Amino acid sequence: MMNKRYLLLITALFLTGCGDVQVYDVDTKFSNVIRVEPVSKGRRSVFLRIKDVTGHASELATSIEQHLKTKGYSVVADPGIATYKLMVTIIKFGDDTSNGQVVEESSIRSFADRVGIAEVEITNLSGKSIKTRLMVGVNMRGGLFKTPTPQVEQFAWTRLIHRLSQAVSRMF
């Protein structure tokens, strides 16, 4: 009797999980981890410039702003009054594998169906600049159906944007 219950439970779990495409996060990778020097509350201002050559990451600026605000930073429109200038260039966003210029991507591409790669540069008031390349991916290969529905695809983009902005804001 007990074995029948387990078999029934396992069958039910299998049948309900097979039709879904599950989305998994892939670890974020940095070419080098950077952190800005802490500053007093009155000097926590950031000028933010997002350059998106892909045309896909339009919500990234808003997401980064929200993360910075939760850490007590204000995003200002004038780079002359900002303590930090944060320049983020999205150089890859999506599933296009034709970009042969991004060699480091192969370490994350083996796990991910959707990849975001950004160049991040932070400059302080004295002009000192620090740079890193940031890579994040989303694996959408769970379940039996390989073709994602529009809702799952939208979820993947949302997760990529969230993870990129989270990673950028961790530098502050």
Rank of each mutant, 00 (worst) to 15 (best):
A61Y: 07
D25L: 10
F14K: 07
G42T: 07
N3G: 06
S110G: 09
M171S: 12
R159K: 13
V26C: 02
G55F: 00
H67S: 12
R109Q: 11
T89K: 14
T123L: 02
V103A: 15
V120L: 02
L15H: 00
E121F: 10
V103E: 13
A12I: 06
S98G: 11
Q166M: 06
F93C: 02
Q151T: 04
T97A: 09
Q154T: 04
M171H: 07
C18Q: 08
T28V: 13
N99A: 07
R133D: 10
Q101E: 09
D25S: 13
R43C: 13
T147S: 09
W157D: 11
V138C: 03
D20T: 10
Y6R: 06
S74V: 07
S126V: 12
K4W: 15
V152G: 07
L134W: 09
R35T: 06
N124S: 06
E37R: 10
L60M: 01
S110W: 07
T83R: 09
L13E: 02
S74Y: 11
M135I: 03
F111V: 10
L48S: 02
A77Q: 14
N99L: 10
S45C: 07
R109L: 10
P150R: 04
P38T: 03
A82G: 03
I161N: 02
N3H: 12
K128P: 03
R170A: 13
R5E: 10
S45V: 11
V88E: 00
T132N: 05
V103R: 11
K41C: 05
D113G: 12
S165P: 05
S63M: 14
I34W: 04
L48F: 12
A77I: 15
A82P: 07
N124W: 09
I130R: 14
G137E: 07
A57T: 04
L60I: 03
S98Q: 09
V120C: 03
D25K: 15
K128A: 14
I64S: 08
D52P: 05
R163A: 01
V115L: 14
T89S: 10
K69H: 04
T62D: 15
E59I: 06
A61R: 13
I117E: 08
K92A: 06
V168I: 07
K146F: 12
F111Y: 11
R163E: 02
V136A: 06
V115F: 04
W157T: 01
A118P: 06
N99G: 05
V168K: 00
E105Q: 13
R170S: 12
T123I: 12
T11E: 03
I130L: 15
M171L: 10
D78V: 08
R5D: 07
A167F: 00
K29Y: 08
D20I: 12
G127A: 06
Q66P: 13
S74Q: 12
L7A: 11
L160P: 00
K51V: 13
P150Q: 04
E65C: 15
I122M: 11
R141I: 10
A156G: 09
L144F: 11
I50R: 02
R44N: 04
P38H: 04
G72V: 02
W157K: 04
E105P: 13
